[in-house]
């Protein structure tokens, strides 16, 4: 996926990719496989300071943005959570901070994976998205103030 594409283009491409799968087993298998290909976080970030504690699974989020382009690495101890992280980061990474702050993650509804992002699911994903948005706002604010 080109880094020049927009956030909605990347979401649309992902949806198209998932349309190949007829049933949930294949869809979930693809989520799990995407998790296996996820860019690993640097071990120095596998600490409590970068951990998003979920009741069911844990997420570690490593911010590595430069300028106003947002870039994150993340990991989870659960494979489905990790696969969903891969999906989210594929769409969100390489976006501008302002794009992320304003973007509604509606593409997940179409993937039928939305239930995993519910705050009541307690797998750390909902908190991860909130954290990414906060980072994005901070990146944008920082960029404006240093202009």
């Amino acid at each position: 996926m080109s880094v020049d594409s927009s956030i909605s283009e990347r979401a649309a491409a992902l949806l198209e990719e998932f349309e190949m799968f007829d049933d949930w087993v294949d869809r979930y298998q693809h989520v799990i496989d995407l998790g296996k290909e996820l860019e690993p976080i640097d071990e120095a970030f596998r600490t409590d300071a970068f951990k998003i504690q979920g009741c069911q699974s844990q997420v570690w989020l490593q911010p590595c943005s430069s300028g106003r382009q947002v870039h994150f690495k993340a990991d989870s101890d659960a494979q489905i959570t990790k696969g969903l992280i891969a999906i989210l980061l594929r769409v969100l990474n390489h976006s501008s901070a302002i794009e992320i702050a304003q973007y509604e993650l509606t593409f997940l509804d179409s993937l039928e994976l939305k239930e995993h992002l519910s705050p009541t699911r307690k797998n750390g994903l909902d908190a991860m998205i909130r954290q990414i948005r906060l980072y994005s706002v901070a990146i944008e604010a920082n960029a404006i103030s240093t202009q």
């Binding site: 087993v25 979930y28 069911q56 659960a78 494979q79």
Partner: peptide, 22 residues
């Protein structure tokens, strides 16, 4: 080495309600 969350999620897809976690 499967995480309980993953197992529970897949079992739910098969219509089976179990508890996962600590």
């Amino acid at each position: 080495s499967a995480h309980p969350y993953d197992v529970g999620t897949i079992l739910d897809k098969f219509g089976i309600a179990v508890r996962t976690g600590h």
